[in-house]
Design a binder for these strands. Sequence first.
DNA 1: CGGGATCCCAAGCGATACTG
DNA 2: CAGTATCGCTTGGGATCCCG
Lengths: 239, 239
Amino acid sequence: MAARATRGFGQYSGVARAVERVGERWALLIVRDLLAGARRYSDLKAGLPRIPTNILSDRLKELQEAGVVRRVPTVRGGYELTALGRALEPVVLELERWGWATLGSPAEGELLTADALAVALRAAFQADASRELPPTEYVLHVGAVSMSAIAAAGALDVLAIGPDALPQPGRRLAAAAPADVLELTVEVASFRPLLAGADEVATVLAGTDELLARFARTFRMTPAPHSDAADAADDASVA
Amino acid sequence: MAARATRGFGQYSGVARAVERVGERWALLIVRDLLAGARRYSDLKAGLPRIPTNILSDRLKELQEAGVVRRVPTVRGGYELTALGRALEPVVLELERWGWATLGSPAEGELLTADALAVALRAAFQADASRELPPTEYVLHVGAVSMSAIAAAGALDVLAIGPDALPQPGRRLAAAAPADVLELTVEVASFRPLLAGADEVATVLAGTDELLARFARTFRMTPAPHSDAADAADDASVA
DNA sequence: CGGGATCCCAAGCGATACTG
DNA sequence: CAGTATCGCTTGGGATCCCG
């Protein structure tokens, strides 16, 4: 019983190690929310409404043991990512991109949180396109959440705004207040079409058509390599 | 009881969807092995020695329902990735890179399979460095597994070799037989130091020192953002 | 009142045995 | 070889309870 190998996969492999460390249920969603900034226990719970409190508590303990998360000493119930945890950002963004491909319309009872929206925007960001465009601030209202995204020279800075915005790192982009500002509103159900390029689903509150086109070039999440049918045979073969 | 929401996270988010689809235990390891080529049930079982057969069976069924995997009609027990499944490659490579950071020496009973090695090499590949170097073939013997990796102009082609090499896509690189060939052997325990740059742990069977230096530039996996201690406060803050 | 711990039940996982 | 069936154990889900 000392040798409880039940947790491991018996593989000397980076993927196996990664899944052992952050593959438990809910763990990557906690990391996703912490990527947007330090959070308190109750903030995490509010952003993950369906997580049982004991599971949140267990995961936070495990993530601390794994060196991914640590407590913020100055804040009661505060947690933040370590450097190792922040190194998960590429993993989370790739998962977001892939998951988007399999994402339909929001199901009954599913909600879009501010932290989820921030990750989606960062995953959809087209750095190359942004480099060719002037610095621009995009203020988005998606359902009940509001974000400000500043894109400048291939860099992106996303910030939740509004009365219930949670603490987060301050703006880092030098051009903190671009002259060009686009503000628009979409329903949650229309957000996916919007990122697919259907910019007519958005209501422009402020800004020109040219800025809207700029948005469409800057943020883009392509729907999917549609899974079934006509997925013609390629170079793979079985002897 | 119709609304069995027990499987979902209640989030409208790409990360949540991705984890719902491929986050079950063992699922990503199955995908990892299938990324190297189509596999039969028994091949998967052999490459994942600790997976219970019922779990492998369940996962393959679930992955088919998720549109990630499909059966190879011409081969009894054959499975391969769909286009959607192949789109998981960036996710798997990022997980491999991150997992490598938390990877120590191989634990008792852990084994390094050919498919795991192939993914590690692809994750370690430095396309930029490769572009500045002549086409080269690297033949690696790591423990009991052998691979041939051809790097040419920023592209990489990895192929398991030897008597028990499993079926896999054929070589794709035009320069199928570079003039420069390096062949080397390492113990499994020395493979991680090797990719960290300690090229003296390898025994060169064929090739020059210059080719060994080329290897070190072409394949590199940096150890870690060491998790604890001295992880100084940065721009994150809690109000 | 926010932050977590405890309980019980159900579902998922792991090992072995068995069948087409 | 390619799975299915069964069973005990572990883990997650949901509600409740306790502590500072």
